[in-house]
Design a binder for these strands. Structure first.
Lengths: 299, 299
DNA sequence: GTCTATAGCGTGATAGAC
DNA sequence: GTCTATCACGCTATAGAC
């Protein structure tokens, strides 16, 4: 036979690899399409049919790559969270712990307003999505998932760890009450940032203040007023006669606070979600979930 | 004729009134059923069919009382917001402005965790619902809607006004930076409370700290440390100088902070929507909305 | 005023041909 | 691996009989 001297396995392996690459590529296309839909129309509008239309495959094909719509959503969450974490990395180098925390806070808020639908998906939709993000961010990030079960990172706690480290330094420097429970402080601080983002995403009630200003006041309140490097001691904000400087604007507040390029276009034009009438239908939907009406864009 | 001495109009008017009462009663039954569904299964699971089933009428009948599912949702929002405002009323009597703000903050958070689905509906779902709540709370509250167009109240700003008043007192007393923009401070403060509630409702990520503790730290940070020991005994704490111990728990944090009975059972058990995996599929649905908006059914 | 029936649409997911 | 076809739902909203 013509091929008798060649190990057939070589061909097989090459074919297997090619198929694997193709499969992986399609998986990425699916996720890309899903990401675009979520950003443009909100998570509630994400459906298997729409994704299939976008990539020009049949809906049934999607199920060869993802077990369900939920699995796609969770993957998006993990990706988004990894993206958020990347934003934090360079900020961890800031020497002064208070300034570091402020920078992290600004980056967090900036991410939320820059990627509203991603933020919603991760932190405002369904706890199971939040869990997926925190638990699966490592595999979703740059690393290949050839060793997905590694989990030596647990990226879910990465952000928390960065925060707690800064807090410990702060306490060690006597700039935070020695009896303060750091975990509690961290949670309350995070809640403040989350509240600012969430309010901006769904409640345009206070059109009043510019986001930067609000963030500035919040950070000053939690971490004390200090311009740049000037370490100031204790000086908690709202003390009785205490501080009286005004709120200084925190300067920069852009999407890429860390100087990192964002994969997501973001700022899509406020997905019909809040712009149009209906917005994001909640949904956790399973069966049907007629989803959102935000057809605005498509039509 | 037997009835010749009686003005037929008297009968007519009585009949009209009876019919009006019956109609109003059915309207209330519809809202009751809707409220129960939202509390039990989440807003996403609210559908005309379910409401109709619950009150044992056909779906078509609902449209004689409400133009759409959305109108029902907005009415619920307005009711819920009115309920929240009622919680605030007694607290406005607290003399010390800082203590007043703390009590308001605790009441706010308590309301959020006591009525999670109502809170979601008002502040976390759709901006148009938030608007409906803030704009329509007066008519939804106790008052009859015989004079619905009155709008001399604008309850939407009521809460904000209470807060700003307290802030002005605080500033006047020198306990707040003279240059602080009160509106900004108010927004950031509200964001903190909202963040605490929102995080608790959708992100059981930090199981760590008890809610009371987190709220306590947040209030101390924003308003200075001073005992919050007893509920609202007019707070003897004349000024800030007083206590400075670490974060102490703020004591009470129950749903009925104001001492008012809540109509809603609340604490339904995390609607299947987010609790269980798939269970009750949410189904958001503005299903079709046949492009044409001409709903405007007769009232 | 109330109902039955249904139009019209959208969904998640699967079976089975190719 | 991909598609067509379809099942089995659930939804909003309306027409028209009674």
């Amino acid at each position: 036979m013509t091929f008798q001297f060649v190990n057939p396995k070589m061909f097989v392996m090459g074919i297997v690899e090619r198929k694997s690459r193709q499969k992986q590529a399609l998986r990425e296309r699916i996720l890309d399409a899903a990401r675009r839909i979520v950003m443009r129309e909100g998570f509630a509008a994400l459906s298997m049919r729409k994704i299939a239309d976008a990539i020009e495959y049949s809906p049934a094909t999607l199920y060869l790559h993802f077990a369900s719509r939920d699995e796609i959503a969770q993957t998006l969450c993990a990706e988004g969270y990894a993206q958020l974490l990347e934003t934090f990395v360079p900020l961890a180098q800031i020497a002064d712990p208070a300034e570091r925390l402020k920078a992290l806070g600004r980056a967090y808020v900036a991410f939320g307003v820059a990627h509203p639908e991603t933020y919603r998906l991760i932190f405002m939709e369904d706890p199971s999505y939040t869990g997926a993000a925190l638990g699966g961010a490592a595999t979703a990030s740059g690393k290949t998932n050839l060793a997905p079960a590694k989990a030596d990172d647990d990226p879910g706690d990465a952000a928390l760890h960065i925060m707690l480290t800064a807090l410990e330094e702060l306490k060690a420097a006597g700039r935070l009450s020695a009896s303060m429970d750091l975990a509690v402080w961290a949670e309350a601080f995070w809640a403040t940032l989350h509240g600012i983002v969430a309010l901006n995403l769904t409640c345009p009630v206070f059109p009043g203040a510019p986001l930067d200003t609000v963030v500035g006041v919040a950070l000053d309140t939690w971490l004390g007023t200090q311009s740049a490097g000037q370490p100031q001691r204790a000086a908690r904000s709202a003390r009785a006669g205490g501080k009286k400087k005004s709120a200084e604007a925190p300067a920069e507040l852009h999407a890429e606070a860390g100087g990192e390029p964002a994969a997501q276009p973001s700022q899509p034009s406020q997905p019909a979600a809040r712009a149009g009438k209906k917005a994001t239908k909640p949904a956790g939907a399973s069966a049907n979930e007629p989803a959102t009406k935000p057809k605005a864009a498509s039509a």
